[in-house]
Simulated assay, not measured.
Amino acid sequence: MTGRVQRLTAVTRPKIEFLFDGQPLSGQQGDTILTAILSNRGALRAAEFGPEQRAGFCLMGACQDCWVWREEGARLRACSTQLHAGLRLRSKAPDGWLS
């Protein structure tokens, strides 16, 4: 599956490059991390307790469904964090990560 999000307007904003799970992706200036990822992929991450894929739930920073991690370990809410160039993100917590 390709991206879950389809842009209907504002499709010519400047492109922003970032990495997600080692894969180069791009979003647009003004995107949240979640919007940028879902514009490129069908899901944000695998569910913890089953085979399903997760793509965010509340989209306003109140749940825990859209957590992503910077490669160095900091946790971010993908739905409410603005994308910026050079981010190196991962869908799973780094080894040894504690909340």
Rank of each mutant, 00 (worst) to 15 (best):
residue 74 A to Y: 09
residue 75 R to N: 08
residue 59 L to K: 08
residue 52 E to K: 14
residue 94 P to A: 06
residue 90 R to F: 00
residue 93 A to Q: 03
residue 4 R to S: 13
residue 83 L to W: 02
residue 28 Q to G: 13
residue 12 T to H: 14
residue 96 G to K: 05
residue 24 P to F: 04
residue 72 E to T: 15
residue 26 S to A: 12
residue 23 Q to A: 07
residue 64 Q to N: 15
residue 27 G to T: 09
residue 93 A to E: 10
residue 65 D to H: 09
residue 25 L to G: 07
residue 52 E to M: 06
residue 1 M to L: 14
residue 43 A to F: 15
residue 91 S to M: 05
residue 7 R to N: 02
residue 72 E to Q: 15
residue 24 P to L: 07
residue 41 R to V: 02
residue 55 A to K: 12
residue 56 G to K: 01
residue 60 M to Y: 13
residue 57 F to N: 15
residue 59 L to R: 08
residue 9 T to K: 10
residue 26 S to D: 05
residue 9 T to M: 10
residue 87 L to I: 00
residue 20 F to E: 03
residue 25 L to S: 05
residue 33 I to R: 05
residue 92 K to A: 10
residue 35 T to N: 08
residue 47 A to Y: 01
residue 83 L to Q: 02
residue 32 T to W: 04
residue 10 A to H: 14
residue 33 I to T: 04
residue 52 E to D: 13
residue 97 W to R: 06
residue 31 D to I: 07
residue 55 A to Q: 10
residue 94 P to Y: 04
residue 12 T to K: 15
residue 49 F to C: 08
residue 22 G to S: 02
residue 48 E to S: 13
residue 10 A to T: 01
residue 12 T to P: 02
residue 73 G to V: 06
residue 38 L to G: 04
residue 8 L to Q: 14
residue 98 L to G: 08
residue 16 I to S: 03
residue 20 F to G: 04
residue 4 R to H: 09
residue 79 C to T: 10
residue 13 R to L: 14
residue 6 Q to A: 14
residue 42 G to V: 09
residue 15 K to S: 10
residue 32 T to Y: 05
residue 67 W to G: 01
residue 56 G to R: 07
residue 66 C to R: 09
residue 63 C to P: 10
residue 6 Q to I: 13
residue 93 A to H: 04
residue 60 M to F: 14
residue 49 F to K: 12
